[in-house]
Design a protein around this nucleic acid. Structure first.
Lengths: 205, 205
DNA sequence: GTCTATATGTCGATAGAC
DNA sequence: GTCTATCGACATATAGAC
């Protein structure tokens, strides 16, 4: 993701390069289908050299997942505390979430699909971040219901619909593709955030 | 899924039982994390006996995927040809899709997550069905735009949002859970189908 | 910090008896 | 149609030289 991945030859690698290379492979082939030798090959080193930087293959996976659990909670979630209505704050979250998702696309795919491969400790950590994120979205929807901006019966279900749709973009949204993250965000906000609005409330849709 | 899975002792198994057992294991642990011996253990037979019914582990995976690619195309998609507006037909599709998804929940998860583990031939088959399904949904949205029922700029993107949200339910929607498939369908139709409506059109929302 | 060499285990799949 | 026995390949991880 960050630097051009080395193709061959003996090199000196950083932990970040290992995570970059492993994430791309795990996303494409699946964690268990990728061997430590595959990761090393991608970096132009021997398999044994990986163990100077990480104690196990699973630790590499955990490092990948951390990029898409800790980061969004720390960087994106604060947008829900900004000024504005619940609707405008959710719109800002969707936009930022999609930008982060595109930047960390392969890590996002790995984080969504390889939960089962994590150790119980690492899995618990990831799930805790995920639950936290989802709870904050749900609470923002609920706040909009209390203020009269939204009209929904089940804020938790609305949050699930929003997050599943947004996270689903990881499988097809690419920076070089025909749709920009902002264009996708506009449509998704209209459908999944504006769709929560009480229909009798003044609305520019 | 169908019969109570045998727990131990030597038994005689059917191909369907193998697919049921394998799907549950693949969904929980991932295809490559599950050995043929694990599947056999679950059925109370020896690993070698599986090869009387399937030529390889990958053939079992392909049989799982067939349940969630061929079946929806043949059973759910015809609802888009019924009478009614594009909106009412999409609503019927969402409802039927969610019922099928709950019935084949573990197979659905496997089909979504283990595409990369399929042989090129089997993967092409699955992707063809998937593209077909998505194209039909997109075309129905486009038909609603032409008739004036819907107001969206990018029917393909609307179809992606709808399908990603609906398919995302496979990760948390369970028959014994607090939310029924119909209850979820109602909310998702309101958000993702009614949300496509031109806001000036007479509408009971 | 990367290397060679290897320990140790498990994998998918097959052969052939019953 | 399931069994026992086993093959050859490959997995993660370690030891110790450089």
């Amino acid at each position: 993701m960050s630097e051009p991945v080395p193709l061959s030859g003996r090199r000196r690698v950083t932990p970040e390069q290992i995570v970059d290379a492993a994430a791309a492979l795990f996303a494409r082939e699946g964690y268990h289908a990728v061997g430590t030798r595959d990761i090393a090959d991608e970096l132009g080193i021997r398999g044994a050299s990986l163990y100077h930087h990480y104690r196990s293959k699973e630790e590499i996976l955990a490092a990948i997942c951390r990029r898409v659990t800790a980061e969004p909670v720390e960087e994106t979630l604060p947008l829900l505390d900004d000024a504005g209505t619940p609707g405008s704050r959710l719109a800002a979250l969707v936009r930022a979430h999609l930008h982060h998702l595109v930047r960390r696309r392969v890590e996002f795919l790995v984080g969504l699909q390889e939960l089962a491969a994590l150790s119980p400790e690492h899995r618990a950590e990831v799930e805790e971040h995920r639950r936290h994120y989802q709870r904050r979205v749900r609470d923002t929807v609920a706040a909009g219901v209390r203020s009269g901006e939204f009209a929904v019966d089940d804020p938790g279900l609305a949050a699930l619909a929003l997050l599943d749709a947004v996270n689903g973009t990881a499988r097809w949204l690419r920076p070089e593709g025909p749709r920009s993250p902002d264009a996708v965000a506009d449509v998704y906000v209209r459908l999944l955030v504006d769709g929560l609005l009480g229909r009798d409330v003044p609305d520019g849709g």
